[in-house]
Design a protein around this nucleic acid. Structure first.
Lengths: 201, 201
DNA sequence: CTAGTAAGTGATTTAATACTTACAAGCGCC
DNA sequence: GGCGCTTGTAAGTATTAAATCACTTACTAG
């Protein structure tokens, strides 16, 4: 049974993170135990602690993985767009696409939301959201500047509604248990959101 | 120590529900134990099981309490409104007001979202959300009929965005750990939402 | 070839948790 | 006033979790 050869800590850490995200797609992240992760990886439970000191360290690494990969998609969407309004649309769909590709990711984030403010993992989530809002506000301001959206749009509110629209879609998919309808619902919601910005369809 | 006299099961059930909601305002509902609830009530842990057979029964009762009280507020808001558009605004603010008055409620709902679809508690949440969406769609349709909003608004999408807008505000308040700013943010977001419906401000 | 190190095992520890049970005591009802 | 049902307590059980530890195995540099 050389199914499971020895690996470097680095690759095992990546594997643990990927397993956690994968398992979170179906179960509640809070209920995923170190034994569950280890079993899914084909190693013993104790082996995990060769690569992460505590379970909280795993959760932190997972959140950082999500941050990194989601932001990569968002920036890519933004940079391939010719103008700020196109960028907003592209970021919206990129975020929805990310949630569809990694259904465990939003569940993990929602789980961390519940934690007390003092938790380092939650602080990381706060930071991520804050940066995200800032990026959105800047892009919205640029769109106003370029006269692509209404001049009197309140950027912080518009950023809040942008995030809320996506979170609403994600919550809906968590309720239905499937991400199938999410993308087409996203199109309808995005259209409405753009109408709020004064964009004619 | 007659601080804690004997009570009827009915009043104890209500007390347990209220305690669960109250404790959920600060901690993660999933981490609130029967011992925590009992301590907060000034009874022993075993006493809880005189009034609820299992902890899941408590969670179900809590979700039903939220349903009942939130829907009461929403219907009241709707009925005191002269027309469908005013009703939408009033429902929005009533929902935000409910979340502010009972910060534990959304946390509990988000917690149940994570559960597998087979869970009876989650099925109840699904049902609540479905009814809510339907009510919104009907009100939106009535607003179209009365020419109070754009005729080409897609009602399901508009209902989804309505919920998302509120959920976004709630998530933001969970991140910041305070519901203080929520109401004023709600005004800004509601204004944008109305713009999406084609309402002039 | 061999010594050192990193990765893995599997048994164990410690601490919680939901739920149970044996018993006690209040309350209504005749 | 006594009887029976309900509510409460205190102690107990079974289970599960993360983390630890002693020991083993594989890889690599000298």
């Amino acid at each position: 049974m050389s199914i499971n050869p020895r690996q470097t800590t680095e690759s095992r850490q990546a594997e643990i993170i990927a397993t956690m995200v994968r398992l979170s797609a179906e179960r509640s992240p809070a209920e995923i135990t170190t034994t569950d992760i280890a079993k899914a990886m084909g190693v013993t439970q104790g082996a995990l602690f060769r690569h992460f000191a505590t379970k909280e360290a795993i959760r932190l690494a997972v959140v950082e993985w999500i941050d990194e990969h989601l932001m990569f998609e968002l920036l890519a969407a933004k940079e391939r767009s010719p103008d700020a309004l196109t960028a907003l649309k592209a970021m919206f769909m990129a975020h929805v696409g990310f949630a569809k590709a990694h259904p465990g990711a939003p569940r993990l984030i929602f789980g961390e939301l519940q934690q007390p403010a003092s938790s380092p993992v939650k602080q990381r989530v706060q930071q991520i959201m804050h940066r995200y809002r800032q990026t959105l506000s800047q892009t919205l301001a640029a769109a106003i500047e370029a006269k692509l959206i209404r001049a009197d749009v309140d950027c912080p509110s518009a950023a809040a509604l942008f995030l809320g629209a996506i979170q609403g879609l994600v919550i809906q998919s968590m309720l239905s248990g499937s991400t199938e309808q999410m993308k087409q619902q996203a199109v309808g919601v995005l259209e409405l959101y753009l109408a709020a910005l004064g964009v004619k369809s």
